[in-house]
């Protein structure tokens, strides 16, 4: 749900989010200053076009790349040797991330890539349940509050930030520029 909300938000302007979600809630974190109001939240949580937005949000996320790690191992693309057996020749080692990139570049219709996308869709996003949840949310009252510190329910999210995913509609160049600027500012501070 967070991914879909992010995607919708990101359609309004190029922005990069760090997204964390658990059973109680979701956190969208960004360095761009943002304004929130009730109508925006309602729009992000709308049922309309849910499937399409979910799919679209997958295209620019790193989720599939992560899912690919398991797939690459099972398919024998990344082989680390049997327990106790001689180590594989070093020149045959490559990380699943590297293989994912190479496949996407030179073999975009590869079945294993397709499987990674499908697994993400089925395992991590259950579209029907999500639609039901959103439907129920529409009937509920929306309370928007600014909190001074972490609340009991938000604390686990903060603790789980290590597992967050990055969703972005900024170009790679814009993102690098932002990171370089950040270093620049830091260097200036000495």
């Amino acid at each position: 749900m967070a991914a879909a909300a992010c995607h919708r938000w990101a359609q309004l302007r190029p922005i990069t989010f760090s997204v964390t979600a658990n059973d109680y809630g979701a956190e969208l974190l960004t360095s761009t200053p943002i304004e929130t109001d009730a109508s925006l939240i309602r729009r992000l949580m709308a049922r309309q076009d849910l499937g399409a937005d979910l799919l679209a949000s997958l295209n620019f996320s790193e989720v599939a790349r992560r899912q690919f790690r398991d797939i690459a191992r099972i398919a024998g693309l990344v082989f680390q040797g049997y327990p106790g057996a001689r180590k594989l020749e070093r020149q045959l080692q490559a990380s699943s991330g590297l293989i994912f990139d190479v496949l996407r570049e030179y073999d975009p219709r590869n079945l294993l890539l397709e499987q990674a996308r499908r697994e993400v869709f089925e395992l991590q996003l259950e579209e029907t349940r999500l639609a039901q949840a959103l439907e129920e949310l529409e009937t509920r009252t929306l309370v928007l509050s600014r909190v001074e510190s972490l609340t009991p329910l938000s604390f686990p999210l903060w603790a789980e930030r290590l597992r967050s995913q990055i969703l972005s509609t900024e170009s790679f160049q814009e993102r690098i520029q932002r990171m370089i600027d950040r270093l620049e500012r830091r260097a200036a501070r000495g």
Binding site: T16, L29, S31, S164, R175, I176, R182
Partner: peptide, 12 residues
């Protein structure tokens, strides 16, 4: 590794 805000990073 370049760091953006929060957990955002890029290996270049």
């Amino acid at each position: 590794k370049l760091h953006g805000s929060h957990r955002e990073r890029a290996r270049v």
